[in-house]
Design a protein around this nucleic acid. Structure first.
Length: 297
DNA sequence: AGGAAAATAT
DNA sequence: AATATTTTCC
C-alpha cells in the first residue's frame, strides 16, 4: 500500500527561490514546520530505529525546492524508557490527523506553489513531511477546495461568520488569491480577520483537544508525552494511534463553538501571505490564480 | 495522476 | 449522528 512515496521529479524554477525566502521565513512558522509522520510503531516495524529523520531517498533540493524548513522530528512515541513498548503489530497506516500546524503547512505549500502547480503531488513534495502520501494530500485538498468554495459563496451578503465549524481550516488564513475574485470587499476583509482571529483560538482549542486525546491514547499505550504546562505542542503530526479497543471521548469543554471571548488567547502572529502568485514558469504569464479551475481563469 | 464520490473509522 | 480520513472509481 505504500510503494512510491516520494519519488521526486524534476522541474521547478529556481526563480521562486528568491521570493520564497522573502515570504516563508516567518520565524514562527518556518521553524517548527517539518515533522515526521513516521510513527515510532511504523519505524520499529521496519527496524528503522536509528531513524534518519529524512526520507532515505529524499533527493536533492534541486528537484523539490526545500523552502520549508528542516526540522527536528519530534518522535511522538519514544517508549522504551521504563519498559513500556508499543505494539508495532498494527502495520496499517494510522489515520492522518490534520493538525492546524499541518494544515498550515499545507496552505503554505499551496499558496507558494500557485494554483497552477498546486496538485497533490507537488504539494506533497513541497510539504516534505515524512510519511505523508499523495492520497493524504489529495484528500485534504479536496476538502479544502470545498471549504473555499463555500467560503466564496458568502461574499458580501448578509452572511455572518463564515464557518466557525471548520476549525481546522479556520486555523489557517486563506490567502486572498484563493478566493476567486475578492477585491477589497470590506466583508471579505472582515471575514479574513475573523478567520485569523479564529485561527488562534482554533489552533489552541484543537491543540488542547489533541493534547487531551493524546493523553488518553498514550495512557493506553503506556507512555507519556510532553508534560503539560511546559512545551506541550510538540508532536504536530498526530497519527490516530490504533487504540486497543475501548475509548470513548467526548470533549469535556465545548469545543464546538468559537465565539465566546476567551480569557487568554492573545492572538499570536499569524502569518500573512504576500500577494504574489504568478505562474512564474514559461515567462510572461502573470495572472492571479484562483485555487482551482472551478471558474475560468 | 488528479478529482470526485463512496466507504469507513472515530 | 456527524465528521474526518481513507479508499475506490473515473
Amino acid at each position: 500500500m505504500r510503494a512510491d512515496e516520494n519519488k521526486d521529479e524534476k522541474d521547478e524554477n529556481p526563480r521562486w527561490f528568491s521570493r520564497w525566502e522573502d515570504q516563508l521565513p516567518s520565524p514562527d512558522e518556518l521553524m517548527p514546520l517539518s515533522q515526521s509522520l513516521i510513527t515510532a510503531d511504523l519505524a520499529r516495524a521496519f527496524d528503522l530505529t536509528s531513524s534518519p529523520r529524512r526520507s532515505p531517498s529524499l533527493p536533492p533540493p534541486s528537484a523539490v525546492a526545500a523552502p520549508l524548513p528542516d526540522f527536528d522530528a519530534p518522535d511522538l512515541a519514544v517508549a522504551g524508557a521504563d519498559g513500556a513498548d508499543e505494539p508495532a503489530r498494527t502495520l496499517k497506516r494510522p489515520r492522518l490527523v490534520w493538525t492546524p500546524q499541518l494544515h498550515k503547512r499545507f496552505v503554505d505549500a499551496v499558496a507558494h506553489l500557485g494554483i497552477k502547480n498546486a496538485v497533490p503531488k507537488t504539494i506533497m513534495q513541497l510539504m516534505s513531511v515524512d510519511g505523508l502520501t499523495r492520497e493524504n494530500v489529495a484528500s485534504h485538498l479536496q476538502k479544502y477546495r470545498l471549504y473555499l468554495k463555500r467560503m466564496q459563496g458568502l461574499g458580501a451578503a448578509g452572511g455572518g461568520p463564515a464557518s466557525a465549524d471548520d476549525q481546522l481550516f479556520a486555523s489557517a488564513p486563506v490567502p486572498h488569491h484563493f478566493l476567486a475574485r475578492g477585491p477589497a470587499d470590506p466583508f471579505v476583509a472582515a471575514l479574513q480577520q475573523q478567520q485569523i482571529a479564529a485561527a488562534a483560538v482554533a489552533a489552541q482549542q484543537h491543540q488542547q483537544q489533541q493534547y487531551y486525546q493524546q493523553q488518553q491514547q498514550q495512557r493506553h499505550l503506556g507512555y507519556l508525552g510532553s508534560p503539560p504546562g511546559s512545551g506541550y505542542d510538540r508532536g504536530f503530526v498526530a497519527r490516530a494511534v490504533p487504540p486497543p479497543a475501548l475509548h470513548r471521548m467526548v470533549d469535556p469543554v465545548g469545543v464546538g463553538a468559537v465565539r465566546p471571548s476567551p480569557p487568554q488567547p492573545p492572538p499570536p502572529s499569524v502569518g500573512f501571505y504576500p500577494e504574489e502568485f504568478e505562474t512564474g514558469a514559461g515567462g510572461g504569464e502573470r495572472r492571479v490564480l484562483t485555487l482551482f479551475p472551478t471558474k475560468e481563469e
